[in-house]
Amino acid sequence: MVRHCELCKAKRAALVRPRNRQQVCKDCFYTAFEEEIHQTIVDNKLFNRGDRVAVAASGGKDSTVLAHVLTLLNKRHDYGLDLFLLSIDEGIAGYRDDSLETVKRNETQYGIPLEVVSYKTLYNWTMDEIVKEIGLKNNCTFCGVFRRQALDRGAAKMKAVKMATGHNADDVAETILLNIVRGDIARLARCTSIITGEEGALPRCKPFKYTYEKEIVMYAYFKKLDYFSTECTYSPNAYRGFAREFIKDLEAIRPQAILDIISSGERFRIDSTAKMPEQGLCERCGYISSQKWCKACVLLDGLNRGLPKLGITRTRGKGLANGVENASGGGKLASKDDRSPSKANIDF
C-alpha cells in the first residue's frame, strides 16, 4: 500500500521527519523545513532589513544548508539582507584546504561573495604548526579560541553587522547538558540565547536553533547540496562525545527530547545574581575580554614565547599573571622565533 504524505495527502511519502516522525513527501519536507526556519527568524527578529550578514561557512553540512536556506529565504520573503560567506582557514592540511574548495563552489552556486580569513594571516601560526608545538592535547582549545576571534575579525573587516552560524538544535541541547554536567551556571544561563553578543559590535545568531541535525542532513541529501563531510583531523573529543551519544539515544526514544532540552534550558530559573564575568576589552588587541588580555592573546603569547601551555594549565601566580605582566611590560621577552601577529592588516 502506498503511504501518502501526511501534509498534502496527495504525493507518496518519501521520508519520516526525525523531528516528529511525520511521514511526508519531499516537497512538503522542503516547505516545512524552510518555513520553520523562516518562522524562527521572524519570531526572534534575528535580522533587520538592510543588515549586512556574515554567514559563517566551514563547508560542512550545517553551514552549507544555512547558506542555501538563507539565500533562498532572503529572496522568497524579501528580507533585504546583504549576505556573504565568511570562512576561516585554520591551516589544517587534508581537511580545511579541501573543505574550503567546497565553500568556494558554494560562492558560485549561491551567488554570494566569500571572504576567507586565515590563522596564518591573523596569528602567523597555522593549526598544523600549533599541533606540532602542543601535541594533540588541548589543540582544540587553540582552534576554538582563535576561530571565534577570527570570525569576528573577518566580519568586522567586511563591515558585517551580524553573523549567522550553523549551530543546530542538537548542538544547543548538547551544550546545555554539558554546562549542567560541568557545573557552569553562568554559561547555562547564556547558552540558550538565539542571539548572543548583542551588547557588542557583532551579534551572532543561530537560525537553526530549533532545527534537528538529521533534518539538515536530510535536506542537504535530497537537495544534493555540495558539502564536505570529513571530520577534522584533530577533532576527537571524548567529553562532548558522551553528551552527543546520550542525545542520539534520547532522540531514538523520544524525538521531542531535543526540543525539550532546549525548552528546559530556556526556562531554568537562574538567579540573576549568578556571577557573570564582566566584559571588558583586551589591552593588547581590543577584542572583548573579561581579563586584562583576551584568551587568544594569552594563547598566542604562549606560543610565541615557546610556552604553549600558557593559558591552558593552571599555574596561578606564576604562569598566566606573570606571563601577561612580562609580555606586556617587556615586549617580546622570550620570543621563540620572530613571529608576531599581523594585527595591522585587520583593524578591530
Partner: peptide, 15 residues
C-alpha cells in the same frame, strides 16, 4: 533526575 527532567522539558519546575 536532573538530566531526565531536562530531557522531559521540566526545566522551569524541576528546582
Amino acid at each position: 533526575r536532573s538530566i531526565a527532567a531536562t530531557a522531559k522539558g521540566q526545566g522551569y519546575s524541576f528546582s
